[in-house]
Design a protein around this nucleic acid. Structure first.
Lengths: 337, 337
DNA sequence: AACAGAATTGGCAGCGCTGCCAAAGCGAGA
DNA sequence: TCTCGCTTTGGCAGCGCTGCCAATTCTGTT
């Protein structure tokens, strides 16, 4: 039952031309609706295509279509992870915007490893994509030179704090960190802890934290304690981290989390331990994931424009927009801080 | 600063051959490490590649490489959504398994629309992928005939309840629904409600529900009430649905949710309303998402082998495994039912 | 009916690469 | 030194399609 009608050759454009009784160029023009052709030719070709079940070969089409410039219809995308809904959200915005343009994205997952990112970029470029979408601004030198030499549009998504290769779409993680700190300070919290991931791999989290600490320093404060974990962030990690941190620093009055997943874990921990939030201890997250607003106490967090970033990145591919698009973020006051 | 060194032609294999002072075929053999060549030739080619910054053109490679069979190195994947972490998990398993094989996946998102799925399949097939990975067993006739005519391996993921086109990898949603019902019955719950999505689009959820109801019927019971919502499932939707359902049927003693996100929303609703779980009302989810185990009361749910499905699907592409792989699922007793 | 100008059409080179094949290089035995 | 058998090499056709160009077929005029 495997799908093998003719195990051999697939239907080609030449077959369609023969079947329709027209020339190859005419078929090509009809199929792409490019150039002029008669109504009659259009009908005959459409019939032949239907009869033969022709599926165009875009490998050939892209190869033929003027090597550089005309475009293959592929977009190469590198994201660090699929485990965190943030990146699928990015892809969602992207594919939604790409839908109907005839472009497809080829996705690589770097697992936060710059070397792997470089390998992926090389692999993706071998498909001669029309554009390359990367995540963040930190890349290996090899990645940068590959991207530059490719002669295609390069869009770096999410982070706007630094120099980009070509186009940059995102928001300022630094500003997000600062806003978080200012919010906590304004609410009167002074004994603040942090729970996050290894800044070596979580570059953007590291930027937020640095900005957060800078604001604390301005106020003559510093983090009371921090708990940094390795691996994939999760509610379980957030809960364990929170419990460990609170055991070390029972006098904390607020905790800043690297993201909402971990913050949810922290909230679970409070619930389990009977700690009043935010009276006994305040929680502040990052990302503004869907579930936060359904919580009995909506999580105080920062909502990032993930879909919009994906969409804007797609828009960059075609238009000649600005080199840098800052989509900002929203501070969600919530009820946990 | 855009990445445009030579706005015109990119480096080709012919350039490398000239630079290295060897023939094109030799370069090709060296680069693919296929066929025999001297050590000296290998070195000269490697140097020339490095010097020129050559990136192979796989469009051309795949086109040349014996049309059918030799393989393009692309895998076409269609998933219904990126908004639900379940499908990124699938991709994660897949890309992890594909990593190092030189294959890349091209992903399309159908948004649960069979027509869109068909369009995506056609679009993906135009890249002459080596395999086509679909989600679920329900497809439009057009999708099925396209897939069959393509002459490539077709793998349908997640659901094993029904006939597949070629290969099927997943678990039985029917069995999952039955297991959920048996669990609730065994725990003594009798007045059970359901909160889920429109079964027209959520086919697999519909299968689970049907099986769930069949088990209830065997025990002489039926669902006390159900709340079916449209759109993207979320904790907020689960919470709203739960509150609506409970308002209509205050005597419910358990609720079966279409997935964990909605169940989390239900749990939030209980927390907010001060309803004891599971004493006053029990909650049962589906999927076994990460956060469920970090909850103060771990959610009672069914853990689905999403990563393993992705991995197994990747394994199908190469090997000649069985037509159907059932990876099963785990019932997580949890503490909410 | 003849003609200019526009619309439509087919032929064919070539995109960059791989597979095939024949030619060349090489070492060892006669 | 010459020949045999193996390894290594380069040339070239062709994958399926598109772009270009010249040929052909219309149109509306005069």
């Amino acid at each position: 039952m495997a799908g093998f009608d003719p195990p051999g050759r697939l239907v080609t454009l030449t077959d369609v031309a023969r079947e329709a009784g027209v020339g190859e160029s005419t078929v090509s023009r009809v199929l792409r609706n490019h150039g002029s052709y008669s109504k009659r030719a259009g009908e005959r070709v459409a019939e032949a295509v239907a009869r033969l079940g022709y599926v165009p070969n875009r490998l050939a089409g892209s190869l033929a279509g003027g090597g550089a410039g005309t475009g293959s219809g592929l977009v190469g995308v590198v994201i660090p992870s699929l485990a965190n809904i943030v990146f699928p959200d990015l892809l969602r915005g992207l594919t939604a915007a790409l839908d109907g343009t005839g472009m497809q994205s080829v996705v690589g997952v770097s697992e936060y490893d710059p070397d792997r990112e470089e390998a992926l970029v090389a692999a993706l470029l071998s498909w001669r994509p029309e554009a390359l979408l990367l995540t963040g601004l930190e890349h290996s030198p090899g990645t940068v030179s590959l991207a530059r030499a490719a002669g295609v549009r390069v869009v770096e998504m999410i982070d706007t704090d630094g120099e980009g290769i070509d186009r940059v779409v995102g928001f300022s993680n630094r500003a997000a960190g600062e806003a978080s700190a200012r919010h906590l300070l304004a609410r009167g919290y002074r004994r603040i802890g942090y729970i996050g991931l290894d800044p070596g791999s979580d570059r953007r989290g590291g930027k937020r934290l640095a900005a957060f600490e800078a604001v604390l320093a301005e106020a003559g404060l510093s983090l009371v304690g921090r708990e940094v974990r390795e691996g994939r962030s999760s509610a379980a990690m957030g809960r364990a981290g929170f419990e460990a941190l609170l055991a070390r620093h029972p006098d904390l009055d607020a905790v800043y989390f690297a993201n909402d997943d971990m913050a949810l874990g922290g909230w679970f921990a409070c619930l389990a331990a009977g700690l009043a939030v935010p009276e006994r201890i305040a929680l502040f997250g990052f990302n503004g994931l869907d579930f936060t607003e359904a919580m009995p106490q909506p999580l105080s967090t920062i909502r990032t424009p993930r879909l919009a970033i994906g969409r804007a990145a797609a828009a960059c591919l075609t238009g000649d927009g600005p080199a840098r698009i800052d989509l900002g973020f929203d501070l969600i006051e919530g009820a946990t801080a």
